[in-house]
């Protein structure tokens, strides 16, 4: 079972305590956006085979949204971090690079 540590309350929560929220760091195109930008925001996803940055909600705990970096091929969790950011923390990216030298990096 997937276990993620909530960066807010510090609890190591099992999957059943959490709610998966899909890809993180999407640019939220809204009113005035082009059709391409809007459909990209609403539907198009990276869906990578490998390192994935994603949103989770500690729904049966503190109730807060947070971010996690996880491998979709092995389910290895690289780390979790606050949702009050527009990109993954530099130290987490460095950690993933060390573990996965072939990883193309976060863009």
């Amino acid at each position: 079972m997937l276990i993620l540590t909530c960066p807010y309350c510090g609890v190591s929560a099992e999957e059943t305590e959490l709610h998966a929220g899909g890809e993180a760091h999407l640019t939220r195109h809204a009113t005035g956006a082009s059709d391409d930008d809007l459909q990209s925001y609403l539907f198009y996803r990276k869906n990578p085979k490998g390192v994935h940055f994603e949103r989770w909600r500690h729904s049966n705990g503190c109730g807060k949204w947070f971010h996690a970096a996880r491998c979709t091929m092995t389910l290895e969790v690289f780390g979790t971090y606050s949702a009050q950011t527009t990109q993954p923390p530099a130290d987490l990216i460095k950690k993933i690079k060390q573990k996965r030298p072939d990883w193309e990096g976060w863009t």
């Binding site: 999957e15 059943t16 709610h19 869906n47 990578p48 994603e54 979709t72 092995t74 389910l75």
Partner: peptide, 14 residues
């Protein structure tokens, strides 16, 4: 289905 992205061909027990 599970709710999270996954390529491992195994799902969650719950």
């Amino acid at each position: 289905t599970d709710a999270f992205n996954n390529y491992t061909q195994r799902g969650s027990f719950h």
